[in-house]
Amino acid sequence: MRLIIPPDIGGDRLNISKKIGFIGAGKVGFSLGRYLVENHEGVMGYYSKNPDSAKEAAEFTDTIVYKEVEHIVEDCDILFLTVPDGIITKVWEEMKLLSIEGKIICHCSGSYASTIFSEISQCKAFGYSIHPLFAIHSKRNSYKELSQALFTIEGSSTYLNYFEQMFQRLGNQVQIIQAHDKAKYHAAAVFMSNFVVALASCGQNLLQQCGFEKEQALSALAPLMKNNVEHIIENGVISSLTGPVERNDVETIRKHLQVLEGEEKEIYKRLSTILIKVGMEKNAQLNYEEMENELA
């Protein structure tokens, strides 16, 4: 999706380097701030209601620690609210009472849209959600890998081009999305991140029931998991499907269902039903009706 710069916003204004501040100093604030500093963007510093965390983040990024939120708002053009999702609204309600005309207010939530900044147009400010499609595990190390992340951006049309160009300049892929798609977008990320952990836990538990030690079970499954993910990335979902569903092996599916119990059995049935749809695309000549009945 290509965007047209609104007529009242000139190209020069979009290209002017802007001063960036962070309100909140957790893993995302640490990581994004250091990433921007490493790429010579104008990060000014951090404010947090926990002064120690702001001080630590400022030292980590070689920037300023702000003791008053009013001062960081005054100094910066762009303010990232890198606070937990559950308190974005609370922080915003406090910021609305400050002088924020012309300010660019961003959060990094995957699930919330910029519409969480209620009445922002009345404040004559501009709101955005900017989210790296990447699991930030460490506040001191994740910044090293952020260059690999795709950033999704959603919000006011005024500065969409500015942020798109900024992250592209850093080498990131960028996707502009719509506010009403944020929840579905975040659900997709959960499928490919958190749910993978759930499936690994299921596989590990089943091997433990077969006599494997816990760490041995995970070690045994690791090459299978890595190889499968690599094939999906390189060859796509359909080409990567193997196993009993792909070859329409009803008897093996039946054996699996006989030994599985409870939620693991239900997960197996639900995921196998999805795999049948993939199998139909890969093997149009096969008839999966008997397998569908077995899984019903």
Rank of each mutant, 00 (worst) to 15 (best):
E213W: 12
E292A: 13
K184T: 12
E94N: 10
Y66I: 07
A58E: 02
S138M: 05
Q258D: 08
P6T: 01
Q175L: 14
F22G: 00
E213Y: 13
S109E: 02
V229P: 14
H107A: 13
V196F: 09
E230P: 03
A187M: 11
S239D: 07
E41S: 08
N227P: 03
N205Y: 11
A113Y: 00
A179N: 10
E59R: 11
Q285F: 08
K182C: 03
T152I: 05
I23L: 09
W92R: 01
H40K: 15
Q168C: 05
V65D: 10
Q216I: 08
S31A: 14
E154G: 11
I120E: 01
E246C: 06
I72T: 14
A183H: 05
L257K: 03
I276F: 07
V65L: 08
M225K: 00
I267Q: 00
A187R: 01
I274P: 14
D12Q: 15
I274S: 15
V229E: 04
K49R: 12
S129F: 07
G155F: 08
H40C: 11
N15Q: 02
G86D: 13
D52K: 13
S17A: 09
L36P: 02
I23H: 12
L3E: 06
N205I: 08
G26R: 07
K255W: 00
Q178M: 09
G262K: 01
S111M: 00
G102T: 15
H40M: 15
S17L: 14
Q148P: 07
E41R: 06
N15E: 08
S272T: 10
K182Y: 04
P6E: 09
Q148R: 07
R2Q: 04
I105Y: 00
E289I: 04
L3D: 13
Y112P: 06
H107D: 12
M192I: 02
L14M: 13
L286T: 04
K226F: 01
N194E: 15
K265W: 00
Q208S: 14
L97S: 10
G127F: 06
